[in-house]
Design a protein around this nucleic acid. Structure first.
Length: 470
RNA sequence: GGUGCCGUACCCAAGUGGUAAGGGACAGGUCUGCAAAACCUCUAUGCAUCGGUUCGAAUCCGAUCGGCACCUCCA
């Protein structure tokens, strides 16, 4: 199975050819743990999970690395603002380390319930300060840095290819159009590698360094940690589309300036999930979390299914109605699959028929071609509805496909554990009596009464079925 | 101001030169005392608008209108 993927560097879909024949290294920008992840963040991790699964499915020995940013994020004003972790700490009264621990835990709860495979290596920025300092020293030796106003800066004028990924036209950028330019910078696009400015006297996170006590610049951690775990050059670097112009641009500059080698072969970026008002942003205040979806009665996999219906390089518009539609689709899909299990006595047979093989080929072509998941999902529906293929063969195909979709397609849907209250049972009993006496007016009014109390009654061959509606 | 992306049915959405995937919703049918469930069937001569290229355009080119993103921290 030949995988192809869109490379932001070339702005085209390229055949995936690993640097080394037997292993693939993939680094994904992880969460900043000063707050809950919103569902826009989670869309990106779902996309990366799909890529992870497709590479594994294709037989590659994958090493997937993700960072946890628990330090050094500035809230605004370029390199001037307050650290987000610090602010959160001040607001909540918790220590910065407790904040990080709490939101890291919450992040993995979310990704776990979305069936996102935890990366092989997850690494915290605060555990890799020494690696970052070492990287700055390498840059210093090669003449890419300067010290000004107490901070160590990277000088982009020493790196002629600066901005290649984002195709920046440096002379036409209006730096400072929206923010104040840091007067310590020689070039407005220079960025901080190490802060020592005693701006925040009570800064909780600070470390000793050859340039004084301080803390690292934001971009540094990804360069230092990815190279530690994956080497000076590796295959894939993922992240959100917003990282192209600043974060990844700066990462490339400092990494390649330090090693003199090409750092990453394939740059893969996921588009945003937006709502009617546009981009989701934590800084807007209120934002949508997975817990909120769950509180509203959705299954986390409803959201995963929703993400699967759009291509990762297109913006996806979130609304409650769309999520409801995804929920309906996912539940119907599972119902159909349950029927297939029944029809085959839950026995699986390997793909043998031409029809089944054709479906499998179609599926693999779609997933291998720049993550065409929506088409792959359509193939699954085609399989489920097919009238020719042996149900036992279908089951093994579904199981195979679910290794990518990860929608728990072969598991029973969770049942409500709450017992039906006595009051409802009594009403249902009364209705059954009324029906027996062919008093349908009475039976129907009882059904209405039960519905008003939040339960639906269904008459089936095997008796009455009661389900909760609220 | 600079740069890029997008506009497909009631909603979400795939499709990037060969005659519009898929899901949800809606409607009709079978079944049922009636419902529900299940099953079956149906829903864009049309892809923002206008013009152009082509045997052929949702797909390529140009213009216009509308939306979004990036150039600040951000998935």
């Amino acid at each position: 199975m030949q995988v192809s993927i869109y490379n932001t560097m070339s702005r085209s879909v390229e055949p995936f050819v690993p640097l080394s024949s037997d292993t693939v290294g993939m680094y994904c920008c992880g969460p900043t743990v000063y707050n809950y992840a919103h569902i826009g963040n989670l869309r990106t991790y779902i996309f990366e999970d799909l890529l992870h699964r497709i590479l594994t499915y294709s037989g590659y020995d994958l090493t997937h690395v993700m960072n946890i940013t628990d330090v050094g994020h500035l809230s605004d004003d370029g390199d001037e603002g307050e650290d987000k972790m610090e602010r959160r700490s001040r607001e909540s009264g918790m220590s910065v380390y407790d904040i990080a621990r709490m939101y890291t835990q919450s992040f993995f709860n979310d990704t776990g319930s979305l069936n996102i495979i935890t990366p092989d290596i997850t690494c915290k920025a605060t555990d890799h300060i020494q690696e970052m300092i070492d990287l700055i020293m390498r840059l210093e030796e090669r003449g890419h840095t300067y010290i000004s106003g107490g901070n160590v800066y990277f000088s982009i004028d020493t790196f002629p290819q600066y901005g290649r990924l984002a195709r920046l036209k440096l002379d036409q950028l209006s730096s400072g159009a929206r923010i104040e330019v840091d007067e310590n910078k020689r070039n407005p696009k220079d960025f901080v590698l190490w802060f020592t400015k005693g701006k925040f006297e009570n800064q909780a996170m600070k470390w000793d360094s050859p340039w004084g006590v301080g803390y690292p610049g934001w971009h540094l951690e990804c360069s230092a940690m990815s190279m530690k775990y994956l080497g000076d050059s590796f295959d894939i670097h993922c992240g959100g589309i917003d990282h192209v112009s600043v974060h990844h641009t700066n990462e490339i500059a400092q990494s390649e300036a330090a090693t003199g080698k090409e750092w990453v072969k394939y740059w893969v970026h996921g588009e945003f999930l937006i709502d009617e008002t546009g981009k989701m942003s934590k800084s807007k205040g209120d934002f949508l979390t997975l817990s909120l979806l769950i509180d509203k009665g959705f299954d986390p996999l409803d959201f995963r299914y929703f993400c699967l219906t759009g291509h990762y390089r297109s913006q996806l518009i979130f609304s409650w109605a769309s999520l409801q539609a995804a929920r309906g689709g996912r539940i119907n899909l599972k119902k159909q699959i349950q029927a297939i299990r029944k029809a085959s006595d839950d026995i699986r047979k390997p793909v043998a028929s031409n029809e089944a093989q054709a479906i499998l080929d179609e599926f693999e072509t779609h997933i291998a071609t720049d993550l065409h998941i929506p088409q792959a999902l359509a193939v699954l529906w085609k399989l489920v509805k097919d009238k020719e293929i042996d149900p036992a063969e279908k089951l093994s195909l579904i199981e195979n496909m679910d290794s990518i979709f990860a929608l728990d397609l072969l598991q029973e849907e969770r049942q409500e554990d709450d017992p039906v209250p006595e009051e409802i049972l009594a009403l249902v009993q009364k209705r059954t009596e009324a029906k027996k006496n062919r008093d349908f007016t009475q039976a129907d009014s009882l059904r209405d009464e039960i519905r008003e109390k939040g339960y639906a009654v269904k008459d089936t061959k095997d008796g009455v079925e009661i389900t909760r509606t609220v």
